[in-house]
Nucleic acid binder design. Structure first.
Lengths: 152, 152
DNA sequence: GCTGAAACGATTTGGAG
DNA sequence: CTCCAAATCGTTTCAGC
């Protein structure tokens, strides 16, 4: 993971469909050299894959919310994950420190659909209490830059 | 945006580097037909682009947190956005309903770096109070499926 | 280990029917 | 939309640093 790898990753984050030759022109390598590095980055798990960035509005997922979820008793992260995975509206979920056990990021078509998803979320077996916060607007969303610092 | 477009989007979300011929095989179209549809989806903004999915751990961004931010007085979303954009650790930010004005998603190298970022966040001019929640583990992260429902 | 050059099949891309 | 053709690209193989 040298500085060339970082520039390759940056380039792919900016446009995952750019060609190896194009990337090579930017980082100063030939296309095969770039491909070898990308393959290695995929192998090491630094690059997990390539995806399309979709406008949620355009797909009819215009409403989102963050929900703090408190579970009953002692529940493992695996159990929490398993309980949330079946809900299609869950786009992200994290275990967290503090009063709540998990933060769940929900996306729905509209407020009505969001209410429906929240009802189903609250219907999950082990869930004790939920506190939901509706998103009014997305201010920014971006990927972290490669190698921000070298540790503590 | 018919059912073929939806399947094309799904395919590109799953792998943004798959070829048009490959997508065409799945959706039952020729490669040029797929390319025209992808170009149109990009034009309409349904597809915003293509990006690499990076492992934050591998890049040295292993620690994240959600921060509820309360601003002083009446602040516009644009001002909030402008105040957060300079902070490299901010990966996402939303205006929200409820007690807080915004939710900020932070990524840092470690707890120390997170503390540093939080300090700089609290140093932002118009910010009144912050409540931070540290992420212990990421349970799941996924893209919303195309066309979940047809609206209200 | 790393690289670049060459070669060949596959893909992209624009135009015609 | 499909078909076709020219340009470009992906991928492997090779030899050299």
């Amino acid at each position: 993971m040298d500085s060339i790898d970082q520039r390759i990753v940056s380039q792919l984050v900016a446009d995952a469909r750019s060609s190896y030759a194009e990337i090579g022109k930017v980082v100063g390598l030939s296309a095969p050299a770039v491909k070898r590095r990308v393959d290695r980055l995929l192998d090491r798990g630094v690059l997990r894959g390539f995806t399309a960035v979709v406008d949620p509005e355009a797909l009819g997922w215009g409403t989102e919310a963050f929900v703090e979820v408190r579970y009953r008793g002692n529940v493992s992260p695996g159990q929490i994950r398993a309980s949330l995975e079946p809900l299609a509206e869950v786009v992200a979920a994290y275990t967290v420190s503090g009063a709540a056990d998990a933060i769940v990021h929900l996306r729905a078509a509209d407020i009505h659909h969001l209410e429906d998803a929240l009802e189903r979320l609250r219907g999950v077996d082990m869930i004790d209490r939920t506190v939901s916060t509706v998103v009014l607007s997305t201010l920014l969303e971006r990927s972290p830059a490669p190698e921000p610092r070298n540790g503590p």
